[in-house]
């Protein structure tokens, strides 16, 4: 019983803290990254481009959401030559809630902050 309570608490803390759960990661993998990987789209590069332009996660979420809901070149952060190499994605069939969740997972996955360290 104690173990169950402990696991529940750990799960809750994970959700609240914005940590990626296995389910979230799987969903992003299936709905987004699978296709990216097949077309060899550099996810890290895309994240950094958004980061370099919008600075905050909130601004990045809005910009990505806008593109996913209306995937046109004018809503994209990628430069024009990118679309001559990679085709424009289709409109997502996910609802807003799932889109938001996946965007959050995407941002958490490629978050650079966790990679930053001080020299020893």
């Amino acid at each position: 019983m104690g173990k169950i309570i402990f696991l529940c608490m750990l799960f809750s803390i994970g959700v609240v803290a914005g940590n990626i759960t296995i389910d979230d990661k799987q969903q992003v993998q299936e709905k987004c990254l699978q296709c990216h990987n097949q077309e060899q789209i550099p996810n890290g590069l895309i994240y950094r481009r958004y980061l370099m332009k919008y600075s905050t996660k909130e601004a990045m979420k809005i910009a990505i959401m806008k593109y996913l809901k209306d995937p046109k070149q004018k809503n994209s952060i990628m430069p024009h030559p990118f679309f001559s190499k990679f085709s424009m994605k289709e409109v997502s069939d996910l609802d807003d809630e799932n889109l938001k969740k996946n965007i959050q997972t995407f941002l958490n996955t490629f978050d650079l902050k966790k990679n930053l360290v001080l020299p020893e």
Binding site: G44, R48, M52, Y54, S55, T56, E58, A59, L112, K113, N115, L116, V117, L118, P119
Partner: peptide, 29 residues
């Protein structure tokens, strides 16, 4: 920013302290 490694070593100077903040002035590192 252009380095793709698992750890990104923040630049440190023994005499100068520094910190970076996002657009909403939230501490990054």
């Amino acid at each position: 920013h252009k380095t793709y490694t698992s750890t990104l070593t923040y630049p440190v100077d023994p005499f100068v302290k520094s910190a970076i903040y996002d657009l909403d002035k939230r501490y990054i590192f």
